[in-house]
Design a binder for these strands. Structure first.
Lengths: 234, 234
DNA sequence: AATCTTTGCTTGTATATACAAGTTGCCTGT
DNA sequence: ACAGGCAACTTGTATATACAAGCAAAGATT
Protein backbone atom coordinates (compact mmCIF):
# COMPACT_ATOMS: atom_id res chain seq x y z
CA UNK A 1 0.00 0.00 0.00
CA UNK A 2 2.69 2.45 0.99
CA UNK A 3 4.42 4.25 -1.86
CA UNK A 4 7.93 3.06 -2.67
CA UNK A 5 10.66 4.98 -0.94
CA UNK A 6 12.04 6.64 -4.05
CA UNK A 7 8.56 8.03 -4.76
CA UNK A 8 8.48 9.56 -1.28
CA UNK A 9 11.77 11.25 -1.98
CA UNK A 10 10.53 12.55 -5.34
CA UNK A 11 7.42 13.97 -3.70
CA UNK A 12 9.52 15.60 -0.98
CA UNK A 13 11.72 17.25 -3.59
CA UNK A 14 8.81 18.43 -5.75
CA UNK A 15 6.96 19.79 -2.70
CA UNK A 16 9.99 21.81 -1.64
CA UNK A 17 10.45 23.20 -5.14
CA UNK A 18 6.80 24.13 -5.45
CA UNK A 19 6.66 25.93 -2.13
CA UNK A 20 9.80 27.81 -3.00
CA UNK A 21 12.28 26.30 -0.57
CA UNK A 22 14.59 25.71 -3.51
CA UNK A 23 14.18 28.25 -6.26
CA UNK A 24 15.26 28.19 -9.86
CA UNK A 25 18.88 27.06 -10.26
CA UNK A 26 19.21 26.40 -6.54
CA UNK A 27 21.20 23.39 -5.48
CA UNK A 28 19.26 20.50 -4.06
CA UNK A 29 20.76 18.01 -1.58
CA UNK A 30 23.29 15.57 -2.95
CA UNK A 31 22.61 11.88 -3.31
CA UNK A 32 24.46 11.14 -0.10
CA UNK A 33 22.67 13.89 1.79
CA UNK A 34 19.27 12.60 0.73
CA UNK A 35 20.30 9.06 1.58
CA UNK A 36 21.18 10.20 5.08
CA UNK A 37 18.05 12.30 5.48
CA UNK A 38 15.70 9.51 4.38
CA UNK A 39 17.67 6.65 5.86
CA UNK A 40 18.09 4.91 2.54
CA UNK A 41 20.99 3.90 0.37
CA UNK A 42 22.56 6.28 -2.07
CA UNK A 43 21.20 4.30 -5.04
CA UNK A 44 17.64 4.85 -3.90
CA UNK A 45 18.12 8.59 -3.49
CA UNK A 46 19.85 8.56 -6.84
CA UNK A 47 16.86 6.99 -8.49
CA UNK A 48 14.56 9.74 -7.24
CA UNK A 49 16.92 12.42 -8.57
CA UNK A 50 17.41 10.64 -11.88
CA UNK A 51 13.69 10.36 -12.53
CA UNK A 52 13.18 14.04 -11.78
CA UNK A 53 15.96 14.87 -14.22
CA UNK A 54 14.15 12.85 -16.88
CA UNK A 55 11.00 14.81 -16.12
CA UNK A 56 12.90 18.04 -16.62
CA UNK A 57 12.44 19.20 -13.05
CA UNK A 58 16.13 18.98 -12.15
CA UNK A 59 19.38 19.26 -14.01
CA UNK A 60 22.62 17.72 -12.83
CA UNK A 61 26.25 18.05 -13.57
CA UNK A 62 28.95 15.63 -12.59
CA UNK A 63 31.23 17.09 -9.97
CA UNK A 64 29.00 20.04 -9.20
CA UNK A 65 25.67 18.76 -8.01
CA UNK A 66 21.96 18.72 -8.82
CA UNK A 67 19.96 21.89 -9.40
CA UNK A 68 16.40 23.02 -9.95
CA UNK A 69 15.80 23.39 -13.69
CA UNK A 70 14.68 26.74 -15.01
CA UNK A 71 10.92 26.70 -14.90
CA UNK A 72 10.44 28.43 -18.21
CA UNK A 73 12.27 25.66 -19.99
CA UNK A 74 9.50 23.23 -19.14
CA UNK A 75 7.95 23.57 -22.56
CA UNK A 76 4.86 21.51 -23.04
CA UNK A 77 4.47 18.90 -25.68
CA UNK A 78 1.88 18.43 -28.30
CA UNK A 79 1.25 14.93 -29.49
CA UNK A 80 1.02 14.29 -33.20
CA UNK A 81 -0.83 11.08 -33.74
CA UNK A 82 -1.40 8.79 -36.63
CA UNK A 83 -4.56 9.98 -38.39
CA UNK A 84 -6.05 6.50 -38.73
CA UNK A 85 -5.68 5.81 -35.02
CA UNK A 86 -7.02 9.22 -34.22
CA UNK A 87 -10.18 8.78 -36.24
CA UNK A 88 -10.80 5.27 -34.97
CA UNK A 89 -10.08 6.47 -31.45
CA UNK A 90 -13.00 8.84 -31.79
CA UNK A 91 -15.15 5.85 -32.68
CA UNK A 92 -15.63 7.11 -36.21
CA UNK A 93 -15.33 5.41 -39.55
CA UNK A 94 -11.91 5.69 -41.18
CA UNK A 95 -11.46 5.55 -44.94
CA UNK A 96 -8.55 6.21 -47.24
CA UNK A 97 -8.28 6.91 -50.94
CA UNK A 98 -4.99 6.55 -52.82
CA UNK A 99 -4.78 9.37 -55.36
CA UNK A 100 -1.19 8.96 -56.53
CA UNK A 101 1.53 6.38 -56.15
CA UNK A 102 4.40 6.98 -58.52
CA UNK A 103 8.13 7.18 -59.01
CA UNK A 104 9.67 10.46 -60.11
CA UNK A 105 12.99 12.31 -60.10
CA UNK A 106 13.53 14.63 -57.15
CA UNK A 107 13.38 18.34 -57.81
CA UNK A 108 15.55 20.70 -55.79
CA UNK A 109 13.28 21.13 -52.76
CA UNK A 110 12.48 17.44 -52.41
CA UNK A 111 16.14 16.52 -52.85
CA UNK A 112 17.12 18.78 -50.00
CA UNK A 113 14.34 17.57 -47.72
CA UNK A 114 15.23 13.91 -48.30
CA UNK A 115 18.97 14.36 -48.45
CA UNK A 116 19.32 12.82 -51.92
CA UNK A 117 20.79 14.13 -55.18
CA UNK A 118 18.65 16.23 -57.50
CA UNK A 119 17.19 13.91 -60.12
CA UNK A 120 17.43 10.81 -57.92
CA UNK A 121 14.27 8.74 -58.09
CA UNK A 122 11.96 9.11 -55.13
CA UNK A 123 8.54 7.70 -54.35
CA UNK A 124 5.58 10.03 -54.18
CA UNK A 125 2.17 9.17 -52.77
CA UNK A 126 -0.88 11.30 -52.28
CA UNK A 127 -3.61 9.95 -50.02
CA UNK A 128 -6.89 11.38 -48.86
CA UNK A 129 -7.96 10.29 -45.37
CA UNK A 130 -11.61 10.58 -44.44
CA UNK A 131 -13.57 10.46 -41.22
CA UNK A 132 -17.19 9.34 -41.54
CA UNK A 133 -17.02 10.06 -45.25
CA UNK A 134 -15.66 13.60 -44.95
CA UNK A 135 -12.03 14.37 -45.82
CA UNK A 136 -9.85 15.22 -42.80
CA UNK A 137 -6.33 14.97 -44.17
CA UNK A 138 -4.61 15.20 -47.51
CA UNK A 139 -1.26 13.47 -47.26
CA UNK A 140 1.48 14.18 -49.78
CA UNK A 141 4.53 12.11 -49.07
CA UNK A 142 7.97 11.74 -50.58
CA UNK A 143 9.97 8.67 -49.70
CA UNK A 144 13.65 7.91 -50.07
CA UNK A 145 13.61 4.78 -52.25
CA UNK A 146 17.25 4.08 -51.48
CA UNK A 147 16.22 3.33 -47.91
CA UNK A 148 12.75 1.89 -48.61
CA UNK A 149 12.97 0.26 -52.06
CA UNK A 150 9.62 -1.55 -51.84
CA UNK A 151 7.59 1.50 -50.90
CA UNK A 152 5.75 1.85 -54.20
CA UNK A 153 4.75 -1.82 -54.28
CA UNK A 154 2.65 -1.49 -51.14
CA UNK A 155 -1.14 -1.52 -51.01
CA UNK A 156 -1.98 1.55 -48.95
CA UNK A 157 -5.61 0.60 -48.70
CA UNK A 158 -4.49 -2.18 -46.37
CA UNK A 159 -1.84 -0.32 -44.40
CA UNK A 160 -1.18 3.40 -44.25
CA UNK A 161 2.23 4.70 -45.36
CA UNK A 162 2.94 5.69 -41.78
CA UNK A 163 2.26 2.17 -40.53
CA UNK A 164 4.31 0.58 -43.31
CA UNK A 165 7.27 2.90 -42.79
CA UNK A 166 7.17 2.33 -39.05
CA UNK A 167 7.67 -1.36 -39.69
CA UNK A 168 10.36 -1.37 -42.35
CA UNK A 169 12.36 1.63 -41.16
CA UNK A 170 11.68 2.33 -37.49
CA UNK A 171 12.27 6.00 -37.07
CA UNK A 172 14.75 7.33 -34.62
CA UNK A 173 14.04 11.00 -35.01
CA UNK A 174 11.27 13.24 -36.28
CA UNK A 175 10.85 16.92 -36.98
CA UNK A 176 7.59 18.77 -37.35
CA UNK A 177 6.44 22.16 -38.44
CA UNK A 178 2.88 23.39 -38.27
CA UNK A 179 1.50 26.35 -40.17
CA UNK A 180 -1.80 27.84 -41.28
CA UNK A 181 -2.32 28.22 -45.01
CA UNK A 182 -4.90 28.80 -47.68
CA UNK A 183 -4.84 26.13 -50.34
CA UNK A 184 -5.34 26.18 -54.09
CA UNK A 185 -8.64 25.37 -55.77
CA UNK A 186 -7.75 21.77 -56.57
CA UNK A 187 -6.81 20.97 -52.99
CA UNK A 188 -9.88 22.75 -51.68
CA UNK A 189 -12.14 20.64 -53.84
CA UNK A 190 -10.40 17.45 -52.72
CA UNK A 191 -10.89 18.40 -49.10
CA UNK A 192 -14.45 19.51 -49.85
CA UNK A 193 -14.01 22.97 -48.42
CA UNK A 194 -14.58 26.46 -49.70
CA UNK A 195 -11.69 28.23 -51.28
CA UNK A 196 -10.29 30.70 -48.79
CA UNK A 197 -10.99 28.47 -45.82
CA UNK A 198 -7.83 28.13 -43.72
CA UNK A 199 -6.04 24.82 -43.42
CA UNK A 200 -3.65 23.38 -40.88
CA UNK A 201 -0.55 22.09 -42.56
CA UNK A 202 1.98 19.84 -40.87
CA UNK A 203 5.38 19.21 -42.39
CA UNK A 204 6.77 16.01 -41.01
CA UNK A 205 10.25 14.71 -41.66
CA UNK A 206 11.42 11.40 -40.26
CA UNK A 207 14.83 9.87 -39.97
CA UNK A 208 15.88 6.33 -39.44
CA UNK A 209 19.31 5.21 -38.41
CA UNK A 210 20.49 5.21 -41.99
CA UNK A 211 19.18 8.58 -43.17
CA UNK A 212 16.12 10.64 -44.01
CA UNK A 213 13.33 8.23 -44.78
CA UNK A 214 10.37 10.34 -45.64
CA UNK A 215 8.99 13.83 -45.94
CA UNK A 216 5.25 14.33 -45.59
CA UNK A 217 2.97 17.31 -45.99
CA UNK A 218 -0.28 16.79 -44.12
CA UNK A 219 -3.08 19.26 -44.84
CA UNK A 220 -6.16 19.42 -42.63
CA UNK A 221 -9.29 21.50 -43.19
CA UNK A 222 -9.31 24.15 -40.48
CA UNK A 223 -13.03 23.83 -39.97
CA UNK A 224 -12.96 20.13 -39.37
CA UNK A 225 -9.78 19.43 -37.52
CA UNK A 226 -8.03 20.31 -34.31
CA UNK A 227 -4.64 19.11 -33.32
CA UNK A 228 -4.88 18.15 -29.68
CA UNK A 229 -2.18 17.56 -27.13
CA UNK A 230 -1.86 16.66 -23.54
CA UNK A 231 1.02 16.36 -21.16
CA UNK A 232 1.12 15.31 -17.56
CA UNK A 233 4.07 16.87 -15.85
CA UNK A 234 3.83 15.20 -12.51
CA UNK B 1 36.03 6.40 -25.10
CA UNK B 2 34.11 3.15 -25.09
CA UNK B 3 30.38 3.42 -24.60
CA UNK B 4 29.07 2.33 -21.22
CA UNK B 5 27.94 -1.28 -21.06
CA UNK B 6 24.23 -0.52 -20.66
CA UNK B 7 24.39 1.54 -23.87
CA UNK B 8 25.86 -1.44 -25.71
CA UNK B 9 22.97 -3.56 -24.53
CA UNK B 10 20.45 -0.92 -25.61
CA UNK B 11 22.03 -0.76 -29.05
CA UNK B 12 22.00 -4.53 -29.33
CA UNK B 13 18.29 -4.62 -28.47
CA UNK B 14 17.37 -1.80 -30.84
CA UNK B 15 19.40 -3.36 -33.65
CA UNK B 16 17.61 -6.67 -33.25
CA UNK B 17 14.23 -4.98 -33.21
CA UNK B 18 15.04 -2.94 -36.29
CA UNK B 19 16.23 -5.88 -38.32
CA UNK B 20 13.17 -7.82 -37.35
CA UNK B 21 14.66 -10.47 -35.08
CA UNK B 22 12.04 -9.54 -32.51
CA UNK B 23 8.82 -8.29 -34.02
CA UNK B 24 5.98 -6.35 -32.52
CA UNK B 25 4.84 -7.84 -29.19
CA UNK B 26 7.60 -10.43 -29.26
CA UNK B 27 9.30 -11.28 -26.01
CA UNK B 28 12.84 -10.04 -25.57
CA UNK B 29 15.37 -11.77 -23.31
CA UNK B 30 14.84 -11.42 -19.59
CA UNK B 31 17.10 -9.38 -17.37
CA UNK B 32 18.94 -12.48 -16.24
CA UNK B 33 19.32 -13.78 -19.79
CA UNK B 34 20.82 -10.47 -20.95
CA UNK B 35 23.09 -10.37 -17.93
CA UNK B 36 24.40 -13.82 -18.85
CA UNK B 37 24.74 -12.99 -22.53
CA UNK B 38 26.65 -9.77 -21.93
CA UNK B 39 28.55 -10.93 -18.89
CA UNK B 40 27.18 -8.17 -16.70
CA UNK B 41 25.09 -8.01 -13.58
CA UNK B 42 21.33 -8.11 -13.69
CA UNK B 43 21.09 -4.46 -12.61
CA UNK B 44 23.04 -3.32 -15.66
CA UNK B 45 20.87 -5.30 -18.04
CA UNK B 46 17.87 -3.97 -16.17
CA UNK B 47 18.97 -0.40 -16.76
CA UNK B 48 19.13 -0.94 -20.52
CA UNK B 49 15.63 -2.42 -20.53
CA UNK B 50 14.24 0.30 -18.26
CA UNK B 51 15.54 3.10 -20.47
CA UNK B 52 14.05 1.50 -23.57
CA UNK B 53 10.73 1.24 -21.76
CA UNK B 54 10.91 4.96 -21.02
CA UNK B 55 11.57 5.60 -24.69
CA UNK B 56 8.49 3.61 -25.59
CA UNK B 57 10.43 0.91 -27.43
CA UNK B 58 9.58 -1.85 -24.97
CA UNK B 59 6.78 -2.61 -22.57
CA UNK B 60 7.13 -4.82 -19.55
CA UNK B 61 4.91 -6.62 -17.16
CA UNK B 62 5.90 -8.07 -13.85
CA UNK B 63 5.84 -11.84 -13.88
CA UNK B 64 5.50 -12.10 -17.63
CA UNK B 65 8.49 -10.47 -19.21
CA UNK B 66 9.54 -7.65 -21.51
CA UNK B 67 8.07 -7.20 -24.99
CA UNK B 68 8.53 -5.07 -28.09
CA UNK B 69 6.05 -2.20 -27.97
CA UNK B 70 3.60 -1.74 -30.79
CA UNK B 71 5.36 0.45 -33.29
CA UNK B 72 2.39 2.60 -34.21
CA UNK B 73 2.08 3.86 -30.68
CA UNK B 74 5.32 5.79 -31.00
CA UNK B 75 3.62 9.13 -31.55
CA UNK B 76 5.93 12.07 -31.98
CA UNK B 77 5.86 15.21 -29.99
CA UNK B 78 5.68 18.82 -30.91
CA UNK B 79 7.19 21.34 -28.57
CA UNK B 80 5.24 24.45 -27.72
CA UNK B 81 7.62 27.06 -26.46
CA UNK B 82 7.30 30.35 -24.71
CA UNK B 83 7.02 33.02 -27.38
CA UNK B 84 9.53 35.38 -25.73
CA UNK B 85 12.18 32.66 -25.51
CA UNK B 86 11.43 31.60 -29.03
CA UNK B 87 11.93 35.07 -30.48
CA UNK B 88 15.07 35.74 -28.47
CA UNK B 89 16.33 32.29 -29.39
CA UNK B 90 16.23 33.34 -33.01
CA UNK B 91 18.41 36.30 -32.07
CA UNK B 92 15.62 38.74 -32.81
CA UNK B 93 14.24 41.64 -30.86
CA UNK B 94 11.30 40.83 -28.60
CA UNK B 95 8.69 43.40 -27.68
CA UNK B 96 5.35 43.21 -25.94
CA UNK B 97 2.39 45.56 -25.78
CA UNK B 98 -0.28 45.22 -23.09
CA UNK B 99 -3.66 45.96 -24.68
CA UNK B 100 -5.98 44.95 -21.86
CA UNK B 101 -5.63 44.07 -18.21
CA UNK B 102 -8.95 43.95 -16.43
CA UNK B 103 -11.25 42.15 -14.05
CA UNK B 104 -14.59 40.88 -15.30
CA UNK B 105 -17.28 38.33 -14.51
CA UNK B 106 -16.93 35.01 -16.30
CA UNK B 107 -19.39 34.23 -19.04
CA UNK B 108 -20.46 30.65 -19.65
CA UNK B 109 -17.61 29.55 -21.90
CA UNK B 110 -14.88 31.07 -19.73
CA UNK B 111 -16.46 29.65 -16.59
CA UNK B 112 -16.37 26.15 -18.03
CA UNK B 113 -12.79 26.48 -19.27
CA UNK B 114 -11.54 27.73 -15.92
CA UNK B 115 -13.78 25.56 -13.78
CA UNK B 116 -15.34 28.48 -11.88
CA UNK B 117 -18.94 29.61 -11.44
CA UNK B 118 -20.59 31.77 -14.07
CA UNK B 119 -20.29 35.37 -12.94
CA UNK B 120 -17.19 34.73 -10.79
CA UNK B 121 -14.57 37.40 -11.30
CA UNK B 122 -11.69 36.37 -13.52
CA UNK B 123 -8.66 38.24 -14.83
CA UNK B 124 -8.41 38.96 -18.53
CA UNK B 125 -5.30 40.15 -20.33
CA UNK B 126 -4.67 40.77 -23.98
CA UNK B 127 -1.06 41.13 -25.10
CA UNK B 128 0.53 41.62 -28.46
CA UNK B 129 3.96 40.03 -28.84
CA UNK B 130 6.24 41.31 -31.59
CA UNK B 131 9.40 40.08 -33.24
CA UNK B 132 11.62 42.77 -34.71
CA UNK B 133 8.69 45.16 -34.63
CA UNK B 134 6.22 42.90 -36.40
CA UNK B 135 3.40 41.18 -34.47
CA UNK B 136 3.81 37.43 -34.12
CA UNK B 137 1.30 36.54 -31.43
CA UNK B 138 -1.89 37.95 -29.99
CA UNK B 139 -2.41 36.48 -26.55
CA UNK B 140 -5.83 36.53 -24.93
CA UNK B 141 -5.72 35.03 -21.48
CA UNK B 142 -8.21 34.32 -18.73
CA UNK B 143 -6.87 33.65 -15.27
CA UNK B 144 -8.52 32.10 -12.24
CA UNK B 145 -8.16 34.87 -9.64
CA UNK B 146 -9.05 32.48 -6.84
CA UNK B 147 -5.76 30.70 -7.46
CA UNK B 148 -3.69 33.69 -8.58
CA UNK B 149 -5.15 36.72 -6.73
CA UNK B 150 -2.32 39.12 -7.61
CA UNK B 151 -2.42 38.47 -11.34
CA UNK B 152 -3.88 41.83 -12.34
CA UNK B 153 -1.35 43.78 -10.26
CA UNK B 154 1.58 42.55 -12.34
CA UNK B 155 3.56 44.59 -14.82
CA UNK B 156 3.58 42.43 -17.92
CA UNK B 157 6.08 44.67 -19.65
CA UNK B 158 8.65 43.31 -17.20
CA UNK B 159 7.57 39.69 -17.12
CA UNK B 160 5.23 37.84 -19.46
CA UNK B 161 2.08 36.25 -18.03
CA UNK B 162 3.53 32.84 -18.79
CA UNK B 163 6.66 33.58 -16.81
CA UNK B 164 4.72 35.05 -13.89
CA UNK B 165 2.29 32.14 -13.74
CA UNK B 166 5.13 29.64 -13.90
CA UNK B 167 6.53 31.17 -10.75
CA UNK B 168 3.45 31.60 -8.59
CA UNK B 169 1.56 28.50 -9.70
CA UNK B 170 3.95 25.89 -11.09
CA UNK B 171 1.87 23.95 -13.53
CA UNK B 172 1.49 20.24 -13.29
CA UNK B 173 -0.49 19.62 -16.44
CA UNK B 174 -1.27 21.34 -19.72
CA UNK B 175 -3.59 20.76 -22.61
CA UNK B 176 -3.26 22.20 -26.08
CA UNK B 177 -5.34 22.43 -29.18
CA UNK B 178 -4.16 23.89 -32.46
CA UNK B 179 -6.40 25.00 -35.30
CA UNK B 180 -6.33 27.16 -38.38
CA UNK B 181 -8.75 30.09 -38.48
CA UNK B 182 -9.55 33.32 -40.23
CA UNK B 183 -9.80 36.22 -37.82
CA UNK B 184 -12.05 39.26 -37.65
CA UNK B 185 -11.07 42.67 -38.98
CA UNK B 186 -9.99 44.05 -35.61
CA UNK B 187 -7.64 41.16 -34.91
CA UNK B 188 -6.28 41.30 -38.44
CA UNK B 189 -5.37 44.93 -38.05
CA UNK B 190 -3.70 44.27 -34.70
CA UNK B 191 -1.61 41.52 -36.24
CA UNK B 192 -0.96 43.71 -39.29
CA UNK B 193 -2.18 41.14 -41.77
CA UNK B 194 -4.73 41.15 -44.56
CA UNK B 195 -8.19 40.02 -43.75
CA UNK B 196 -8.67 36.50 -45.02
CA UNK B 197 -5.09 35.51 -44.26
CA UNK B 198 -5.10 32.29 -42.24
CA UNK B 199 -3.92 32.25 -38.64
CA UNK B 200 -2.62 29.53 -36.38
CA UNK B 201 -4.56 29.48 -33.13
CA UNK B 202 -3.41 27.60 -30.05
CA UNK B 203 -5.74 27.02 -27.14
CA UNK B 204 -3.72 26.38 -24.04
CA UNK B 205 -5.14 25.35 -20.70
CA UNK B 206 -2.93 24.85 -17.69
CA UNK B 207 -3.55 23.24 -14.36
CA UNK B 208 -1.72 23.57 -11.12
CA UNK B 209 -2.05 21.24 -8.18
CA UNK B 210 -5.02 23.20 -6.90
CA UNK B 211 -7.06 23.60 -10.09
CA UNK B 212 -7.30 25.23 -13.49
CA UNK B 213 -5.03 28.25 -13.45
CA UNK B 214 -5.34 29.81 -16.83
CA UNK B 215 -6.83 29.55 -20.27
CA UNK B 216 -5.04 31.22 -23.15
CA UNK B 217 -5.86 31.74 -26.79
CA UNK B 218 -2.72 32.40 -28.80
CA UNK B 219 -3.17 33.63 -32.37
CA UNK B 220 -0.28 33.68 -34.83
CA UNK B 221 -0.28 35.12 -38.34
CA UNK B 222 0.02 32.17 -40.70
CA UNK B 223 2.38 34.02 -42.98
CA UNK B 224 4.82 34.87 -40.27
CA UNK B 225 4.87 31.93 -37.92
CA UNK B 226 5.59 28.26 -37.89
CA UNK B 227 5.26 26.03 -34.91
CA UNK B 228 8.32 23.83 -34.87
CA UNK B 229 8.94 20.60 -33.06
CA UNK B 230 11.68 18.11 -32.67
CA UNK B 231 12.02 14.84 -30.91
CA UNK B 232 15.01 12.59 -30.60
CA UNK B 233 13.93 9.03 -30.04
CA UNK B 234 17.30 7.44 -29.50
C1' DA C 1 52.66 35.88 -7.21
C1' DA C 2 51.67 32.31 -10.09
C1' DT C 3 51.22 27.55 -10.89
C1' DC C 4 50.86 22.88 -9.83
C1' DT C 5 49.09 19.26 -6.61
C1' DT C 6 46.26 17.35 -3.45
C1' DT C 7 42.06 16.59 -1.24
C1' DG C 8 37.26 16.21 -0.87
C1' DC C 9 32.78 16.39 -2.71
C1' DT C 10 29.92 15.53 -6.45
C1' DT C 11 27.71 12.55 -10.04
C1' DG C 12 28.39 8.23 -13.25
C1' DT C 13 28.95 3.30 -13.92
C1' DA C 14 28.93 -1.37 -12.36
C1' DT C 15 28.50 -5.42 -9.37
C1' DA C 16 26.53 -8.79 -6.05
C1' DT C 17 22.90 -9.65 -3.27
C1' DA C 18 18.35 -9.97 -0.99
C1' DC C 19 13.61 -10.11 -0.78
C1' DA C 20 8.86 -8.77 -2.63
C1' DA C 21 5.36 -9.55 -5.90
C1' DG C 22 2.98 -11.07 -10.17
C1' DT C 23 2.37 -14.90 -13.67
C1' DT C 24 2.47 -19.38 -15.44
C1' DG C 25 2.40 -24.12 -15.50
C1' DC C 26 3.20 -28.34 -13.47
C1' DC C 27 2.23 -31.66 -10.12
C1' DT C 28 0.03 -33.68 -6.40
C1' DG C 29 -3.93 -35.07 -3.49
C1' DT C 30 -8.63 -35.72 -3.29
C1' DA D 1 -11.40 -34.81 -13.40
C1' DC D 2 -10.68 -31.16 -10.71
C1' DA D 3 -8.76 -28.13 -7.23
C1' DG D 4 -5.18 -26.71 -4.61
C1' DG D 5 -0.80 -25.66 -3.88
C1' DC D 6 3.84 -25.50 -5.05
C1' DA D 7 7.88 -24.32 -7.93
C1' DA D 8 10.11 -21.66 -11.39
C1' DC D 9 10.64 -17.56 -13.71
C1' DT D 10 9.66 -12.95 -14.31
C1' DT D 11 9.97 -7.92 -13.01
C1' DG D 12 10.11 -4.44 -8.87
C1' DT D 13 12.38 -2.43 -4.88
C1' DA D 14 16.24 -1.78 -1.95
C1' DT D 15 20.91 -2.13 0.01
C1' DA D 16 26.02 -2.03 0.36
C1' DT D 17 29.95 -1.47 -2.05
C1' DA D 18 33.62 -0.18 -5.36
C1' DC D 19 35.85 2.57 -8.52
C1' DA D 20 35.81 6.19 -12.31
C1' DA D 21 35.35 10.90 -13.62
C1' DG D 22 34.42 15.86 -13.24
C1' DC D 23 34.82 19.99 -10.47
C1' DA D 24 36.38 23.35 -6.96
C1' DA D 25 38.85 25.10 -3.38
C1' DA D 26 42.56 24.72 -0.19
C1' DG D 27 47.33 23.93 0.08
C1' DA D 28 52.12 23.19 -1.47
C1' DT D 29 55.70 24.18 -4.66
C1' DT D 30 58.22 26.97 -7.61
Amino acid sequence: MAAPKFVEIKQHLIANIERGVWREHAKVPSENALAGEFGCSRMTARRALTELVEQGVLVRSQGQGTFVASLKSQGSMLNIRNIADEVRGRGHDYQVQVLEQLRLPADASVAIALGVAVGAEVGQTRLLHSEDGRPVQLELRFVNLALVPDYLEQDFYRQTPHEYLSQVAPLTEAHHEVEAVVVDAKTASLLEIDQGEPCLRIHRRTWSRSGTVSFARLTHPGSRYRLGGHLVMD
